[in-house]
């Protein structure tokens, strides 16, 4: 761990020299202490050729867990990076290095990532995920395309065979990635540059062949190459923007919210069992409640209470203290109720 000067330490909170991951959905490192974050990471629109060492997922038929079989409809795979590492030096530089492709995938400035979709909305307890891919914050200035840009004697290392990630080390807290193709070992470090929309690359190779980075003119180098990757303003990202903008309640809006708030993870809509009771064929029907002799009618008041204060009435056979209370705008409550009520009608 890098030691800060004593005087500076005294002036900071005790854990300031240990930049830990906190409830802050926009974690940031600094030039002195870059942040390394492994998580699912966004794919800002990388071309297919970049994924030569990945497989392609395919769409799948919608599955009904109550029937145990497929039903009409399809689920499409979504963009995202499964095994990449995000690194942030504060506002000056962020990048994504992929451990599957063993290459730099994209670089940006002005922010890092917004983890809200995965880490959860602080207003709702900071734990409830609604999707699992963070959103970028800042200006994207470079992204990978075509074959691997690292070249030996003018030939992309992609032609030499599979690239295999072996790990990384921290030097002055800056990661240096290590990978190999065959018996040739490589390292790559990416650091902030003084030039705008740029970063510096330091590449090493165990090969005696001439080392170059496709598209960047540089003097011939063997063993070690340092170049500046100059990009341009490709697009801007503002992180996760939650604005449901629901002014008029509707069942359709309710369906969106039902998935967005993660309700679907525990409550089926077809009557099948899950962590929580199904909301299918619920509205207008009697519900057996723990501790009550008589069933309760699942009317609007019941549904509203169950969202606002889930512990007030626990459905028989299900655990208490399981669902968090949801504090939502009135139009969102109404939309969710309309959606649940719509599930009572025959299709």
């Amino acid at each position: 761990m890098r030691k800060l000067p004593i005087l500076l330490c005294l002036a900071l909170p005790l854990f300031a020299d240990e930049p830990r991951l906190t409830f802050d959905n926009r974690p940031m490192g600094s030039i002195a202490k870059p942040l390394v974050l492994r998580s699912y990471l966004p794919d800002p629109g990388l071309e297919d050729s970049v994924f030569s060492q990945h497989d392609h997922a395919r769409k799948v038929s919608k599955y009904n867990p109550g029937l145990g079989s497929d039903v009409p409809g399809e689920i499409q795979p979504v963009p995202g990076l499964a095994a990449a590492i995000g690194v942030n030096f504060g506002p000056s530089l962020s990048y994504v290095f992929d451990t599957t492709e063993c290459r730099l995938l994209y670089t940006w400035q002005g922010g890092f990532v917004d983890m809200t979709p995965y880490w959860g909305d602080p207003d709702k307890g900071s734990r409830v995920s609604f999707d699992y891919v963070p959103r970028l914050v800042g200006t994207l200035f470079w992204q990978a395309s075509g074959p691997d840009p690292i070249e030996l004697d003018g030939k992309s290392i992609q032609q030499l065979g599979p690239r295999v990630f072996t790990g990384y080390r921290l030097e002055n807290d800056t990661p240096i990635f290590e990978f190999a193709t065959g018996s040739t070992r490589f390292t790559l470090s990416i650091t902030p540059s003084n030039k705008p929309l740029s970063c510096d690359l330091t590449l090493t190779s165990s090969s005696a062949a001439a080392l170059s980075w496709r598209g960047i003119d540089s003097p011939p180098a063997t063993g070690k190459l340092t170049v500046t990757l100059v990009g341009s303003d490709l697009s801007k990202f503002q992180g996760y923007q939650r604005d449901n903008k629901i002014t008029t309640a509707s069942a359709a809006a309710g369906e969106t919210l039902f998935n967005q708030y993660g309700c679907a993870a525990c409550h089926s809509i077809d009557g099948s069992k899950s962590h929580g009771p199904s909301v299918g064929k619920l509205a207008g029907h009697p519900v057996e409640i723990e501790g009550l002799d008589q069933p309760v009618l699942a009317d609007r008041a019941y549904l509203l209470e169950s969202i606002k204060a889930p512990n007030a009435k626990i459905v028989k056979g299900y655990p208490p203290n399981y669902m968090p209370p949801f504090g939502l705008p009135e139009a969102e409550y109404d939309s969710l109720i309309l959606y649940i009520q719509s599930l009572d009608k025959p299709e």
């Binding site: 497989d55 599955y63 867990p65 795979p77």
Partner: peptide
């Protein structure tokens, strides 16, 4: 994996259509 979440378009490792099915 859980059917409550998707897969990515590009997967680490070989993708199986039959393995993807179900809950």
């Amino acid at each position: 994996a859980s059917f409550s979440g998707p897969t990515f378009k590009h997967t680490l490792g070989t993708f199986s259509d039959a393995g993807r099915r179900g809950r």
